[in-house]
Design a protein around this nucleic acid. Structure first.
Lengths: 209, 209
DNA sequence: CAATAATATGACATCGGTGTCATATTGTAT
DNA sequence: ATACAATATGACACCGATGTCATATTATTG
């Protein structure tokens, strides 16, 4: 956690530092990120950085929390309707939420996606007890779906969860890459469409007939 | 390319250096790999390294070529039977070949997979003209499959190619992770099975009925 | 054997990064 | 105004990496 001092900073300065770090972490893995670049871009002296954070990991952890909080807001709708929606609808909403989050917060999404791809070791270091493998969530949804009769019994839901999880990452990656190359070259609609197509294929592959 | 001197080296030494580099590149991205670690593990002096390679990228490029050559051998069967096999069979064979290659050459597969995930920039740097986006191959196969009537016209084959490509990477990653954690904890059969299940789902999702 | 070519070696200059600390500056309370 | 606390600052010691180069060793050849 950042020190009290950091939170006492005038908003403008705090934001400047935060943005510099977000820039850095969205381009570099935590391992390759450097304090030097952050302070240079934020325009603060080296000593100050260590007045605010114990080290760069401390800062990273803090930003990871911000991302978690912010992303959660995009999931309110699905989370509140897990019982009303069909299994494939739920997953569809999860995908859509992820893309919208990425559209509104491209750098944060980039950091989050980078983090998801870190090794379990690194994840554990920052999340504490690696709270459930990341694709557990899809697994639970699919399991319920199979019980509800939405999903064919022929389908191995662990595999399906693996697929949804990895396609989600691949998609968001792709989206972010599109954003950073062409600015608005490929709009969000193209990606929502792509998500749709992916879901159509997997959905078609796993649904009960 | 390595220098003549490198190729003149006694086999034992050459192999030692090669293996040290393979170890390094399979754990680290090229960006994070260091000459220092390679020479330390190979037990050669610093100056020698630069007698053999212009720099670490030179060495990396060379190993990338070795990987390409070696992997190609695993694809002989499919490549020779593109016309006799059904579209989903072809893709299945590609997956199987990839897993077998990874089983026989786990470190090389790790390097290859890491490379596939590099940015286009990096890829271009090492491949020259980024010879066709990597998922082009699946695209061509699927396109032919659609013409042959194997694949439903409802399916967007670009999306399907995207899926096959990314699932392939995710699978091999998973396989390698399993290998390095438990030695032989999860055997190759479990993975061939997983590949099967993935193909069943996507296949079921895209095939013509 | 002598001379020349090929190869080996590690000390070195240089760079970019980290975290600390003594000191300077600013803010606050009496 | 003074004293005390909070904050700011950048020089510094230290680390690990890169690529080079003068020198040493070994091989080859006439």
């Amino acid at each position: 956690m950042p020190t009290e001092t950091f939170f006492n900073l005038p908003e403008e300065k705090r934001e400047r530092i935060l943005n510099a770090a977000i820039d850095e972490f969205s381009q570099q893995s935590i391992k390759n990120s450097s304090v030097s670049k952050i302070i240079k871009n934020a325009g603060i002296p080296r000593g100050s950085f260590y007045q605010y954070f114990s080290d760069i990991k401390d800062f990273y952890k803090y930003i990871l929390n911000i991302i978690g909080d912010k992303k959660l807001k995009y999931l309110y709708y699905v989370m509140g309707n897990l019982d009303n929606l069909g299994t494939l609808e739920i997953i569809g909403e999860l995908y859509i939420s992820g893309i919208k989050f990425a559209k509104d917060n491209p750098k944060l999404a980039a950091i989050g996606n980078k983090f998801l791809k870190e090794s379990d070791e690194v994840k554990k270091e920052f999340l504490g007890e690696l709270e459930g493998k990341s694709n557990d969530f899809f697994y639970q949804i699919l399991k319920k779906g199979q019980e509800k009769g939405d999903i064919s019994e022929d389908v191995d839901i662990e595999t399906a969860a693996f697929m949804f999880f990895n396609m989600n990452i691949a998609m968001v990656d792709d989206f972010i890459k599109g954003l950073s190359i062409g600015g608005e070259l490929v709009g969000i609609d193209a990606f929502l469409d792509k998500a749709d197509k992916i879901l159509y294929i997997i959905g078609n592959g796993i649904k009960k007939r």
